[in-house]
Amino acid sequence: MNKLTRRIILYAFAIWSFFPLYWLLNTSFKTSKDALARPPTFIFKPILDNYLDVISNNEVWNYFVDSLIVAMGTTFFGLLIGIPAAYILARFNFKGNADYGFWILSTRMTPPIAMLIPFFIMYLKLGILDTHIGLIIAHVGLNLSIIVWLMRGFYEEIPMEIEEASYVDGSSYFQTFYKIALPLSLPGISAVGIITFLFSWNEFLFALVLGDSVVRTSPVGLYGFVGYQKIYWGQLSASASLLLIPVLFFVFLFQKPLIKGLTLGSFK
């Protein structure tokens, strides 16, 4: 495949990925009449009202802050708890390794709907309903399987020789993990970190049921723009568009190791 074909395909895929968002952005600059106009309008008199509306809406800011706290917290604690488990599963052959790994995976398989009420009761008794930490715990639990399994995959790709050499040099297990394995797995951590952040940022059902008025993340809050018998297109699209900015910023930050991974790879 030559360079030109490759680029055409890559940009075509970019258009496909972007088009629905273009339509959303487009809608966010429209009056409610234009949003539904027939035929759909590509060129129109843009208005900023929807954005002014959303920016001056304190609730939307609160959704944003809550989402940010929960998603950052989930990513941090998820990686903190998940990476050590992944490392063990990848590097140590102990009895029950496979079963333990599968058990972790199975926590993702249960459809949440049947579990919602017991889950809610548990949180009610513990008194962590409608708290950031409560939702972070739930989100870490929901995403731990993916963190552990993906990170295990990344560790398995790293040749063991360096770590083994480190043991020979007299380093402890923990030092080896911390000083050698962890830095080598940065591209993996970056990809998994982005995924965890996005999963938590956009999680709906648990955020709805376990959160309330204190903690209301943006997926739950934005659903409020879907009114009874009508949809507030302007506010919905404007706030969704604005909420992309912090996510892109986060993704951008976490992307660096993905690119650096190449140079790290050649070091091996």
Binding site: F13, L21, L198, N202, P219, I259
Partner: peptide, 26 residues
């Protein structure tokens, strides 16, 4: 590459409910 990767990630980044209702409209 950075630009393309960011564009590609957008569907995962946008609040799903907004995307889903946009599809309903489209």
């Amino acid at each position: 590459i950075s630009f393309l990767r960011t564009i590609y990630l957008l569907p995962l980044a946008i609040t799903p409910i907004a995307a889903t209702f946009t599809f309903r409209l489209m």
